Simulated assay, not measured.
Amino acid sequence: MKNRYGNNWFKLFFALLLGFGLGATVFIFSSELNGGQRKMKKDHAIQNISDVENGVLAQKNILDSLNILKTAYDTVILENAALFEELELEKRNVENLMEIIQASHNPSINQIKIFRNQLVTLKASLDAKMEEIKKLKSQNKNLLTEIESQNVVMYKQKVENDTLISKQKKLETTLKDASKLALSNFNVVALKEKSSGKESETEKARNTKKLKVSFTVNANSIAKTGKRVFYIQVLDQKNSVLGENKLIEFGNDKALVYSFIVSTDFQGKSANVYGILNTDDSLFKKGTYFVNFFDKQEIMGSTSVTLQ
């Protein structure tokens, strides 16, 4: 019976020891579990705070980059009127993204990624435009250089043309002047008629029946050949035109009143020409008579005769 009592006590002690061990183990495990959960919650809270701070910082950085991008577009737009509409559209895209980011509070990581991707796209677009502008500037520079070269060539050509035109005009003027007929040996005499019909010179007005004018057409190898007409104008003391007293117009606002016409068949050699002014007995009076010689409207020379 004593052995039986000892066994029961031992079993009781062992049960108590086992219960105490299990309770301690449960307590320790529970404490560690609760501590681990609290740590995880704390770490998660810290991570959330860090994510928010990183999101705000990333948002600010993206906005700063967009501001720089917008300023770059403003500068490029001012310098490139040809691409104004395209650049303005790209600038508007930057401004729209800025407005979206500014309206976003505590953006998520995915939103930040989207904003960054859009920023990269806008930067790439600006880089492409800058490269295009660079090419255009290079092309414009080459074009300006080509235009300047062409202008130099054109200027030289113009100078040469002007020189040639000037020489041609001088040559034409020289040829025109050289081709003009020159008259010389202008002379006028009063004639009287004898009873025999023979004519002789006189200085007396009462004996004068006609005036004979003469001149020489000088030789000219480059002047136009053929029939050439000259107009003779005889003026009395009152400056009245004697003879036919006819008016001829030359079509260039030039006109001439002449006394009579003389002509000759000019063949490049010197030729003597004369003409007669017939008048009534009572026409010639004492005084000086002036005779002018015309090739069309141009006066070629003059002379005079005085009757007593």
Results as ranks from 00 to 15, higher is better:
228 R>T: 12
230 F>A: 02
232 I>Q: 03
232 I>N: 03
233 Q>F: 04
233 Q>P: 02
234 V>D: 04
235 L>W: 03
236 D>H: 02
237 Q>E: 13
237 Q>C: 02
237 Q>V: 12
237 Q>W: 00
239 N>I: 05
240 S>W: 00
240 S>H: 09
240 S>M: 11
240 S>K: 13
241 V>N: 09
242 L>C: 09
244 E>K: 13
244 E>A: 13
249 E>K: 13
251 G>D: 11
251 G>S: 15
253 D>N: 14
253 D>R: 07
253 D>P: 06
254 K>L: 04
256 L>P: 11
256 L>D: 07
257 V>I: 15
258 Y>E: 02
260 F>W: 06
260 F>M: 11
260 F>P: 03
261 I>F: 00
262 V>F: 08
263 S>V: 01
264 T>I: 01
264 T>D: 02
265 D>F: 00
265 D>W: 00
265 D>Q: 08
266 F>T: 05
267 Q>A: 12
267 Q>G: 12
267 Q>V: 06
267 Q>D: 15
268 G>D: 03
268 G>A: 09
269 K>I: 14
272 N>P: 01
273 V>T: 10
273 V>I: 08
274 Y>E: 15
274 Y>L: 09
274 Y>W: 06
275 G>P: 10
276 I>A: 02
276 I>C: 03
278 N>C: 01
279 T>Y: 08
279 T>Q: 14
279 T>H: 13
279 T>P: 00
282 S>Y: 13
282 S>W: 08
283 L>I: 15
283 L>A: 11
283 L>N: 12
283 L>G: 05
285 K>A: 08
286 K>F: 03
286 K>T: 14
286 K>W: 00
288 T>D: 00
288 T>W: 06
289 Y>R: 10
290 F>L: 08
290 F>R: 14
291 V>Q: 04
292 N>R: 14
293 F>W: 14
294 F>Q: 06
296 K>R: 12
296 K>E: 11
296 K>F: 01
297 Q>F: 00
298 E>N: 14
299 I>A: 15
300 M>Q: 15
300 M>S: 07
301 G>V: 06
302 S>T: 10
303 T>V: 07
304 S>T: 08
304 S>A: 15
